[in-house]
Write a protein that binds this DNA or RNA. Structure first.
Lengths: 145, 145
DNA sequence: TTATTAGTCTACAAATTTTGTAGTGTTATT
DNA sequence: AATAACACTACAAAATTTGTAGACTAATAA
């Protein structure tokens, strides 16, 4: 399961994606709208900024905003930043590889399946972007058509 | 990432699968061969027994063994027993469903992707069984052919 | 240039989960 | 009976996650 931190990050990004190109959004506003503890959210947004997903502006009129268009950031990238590895086993991770502690088998009989799971998962998460999880804003839809 | 507990469970089952139909195996032997803390392993095996994956025999000549043939137990089943949910979000889990805490969206824009990830993962884990992760025993292969 | 606004950064604390241990009980075999 | 081996409960240590505090820096506007 994804940690709360990652869930918070996805919600915040979903919100910011819907406001792309509309100027900076206050941390305060995101926290309130998405019911995320504000100080926790501060840390998360900062981490995403340091990883080049977000950008920010200080002072009056400041806030956070997507650094690039929503379709330019994959969900895989976001998850690696806030959650860490996507693979289910360390010995099968592409970005966070670690030799299995105490692996006693000469040829691992377990990792094959988890390579398949990893690839199936990545196929989706690498192709889906913030655009795909963008908050739907009903007030932005013209029902008069 | 899978917890150590789940990794231990998979290793133990991989070992027991290779010994299916050869009588009970001592906890002690599994622990030693697979380098798993024995008391921790006891708890794991017991849990798998209570979930009908394993069976056991007490007293001299006793031990643990698979309750059914290796190809009868899917990895999804094992993971649900020892790890819990396979889905990445509670609101998308089939067996451990929970309403997302503080979900503020009328229509969730996030869960769609994670339903796809869940289905792709399950397609693999439901079809793969203990037979597929069975330990390869080199000494059991006849190289003279 | 000073007051105010809003993000930055470090450190810590509380809560929860994971990992591992101890010890006693129960059942089967010899 | 004695012994072997799993069963079960409870607890403890360690690690991780979640959340908070507070001082600092940069940008804006009066």
């Amino acid at each position: 399961m994804l940690s709360k931190k990652t869930q918070y990050a996805l919600r915040a990004l979903s919100f910011l994606a819907a406001r792309f190109d509309q100027g900076p959004v206050l941390i305060h506003e995101i926290a309130e709208q998405k019911k995320i503890p504000i100080k926790f959210l501060e840390n998360i947004l900062l981490e995403l900024k340091n990883a080049d997903v977000l950008d920010s502006k200080k002072g009056r009129g400041g806030g956070y905003f997507l650094k690039t268009a929503p379709d330019q950031t994959s969900l895989a990238k976001v998850m690696r930043i806030v959650e860490g590895p996507i693979a289910l086993l360390p010995c099968v991770s592409l970005y966070f590889y670690q030799k299995c502690a105490d692996c006693t088998e000469e040829v691992c009989s377990i990792n094959g399946v988890f390579i398949q799971v990893r690839d199936a998962t990545l196929k989706i998460l690498e192709s889906k972007t913030l655009e795909d999880i963008q908050e739907l804003r009903l007030e932005a839809i013209d029902f008069s058509i």
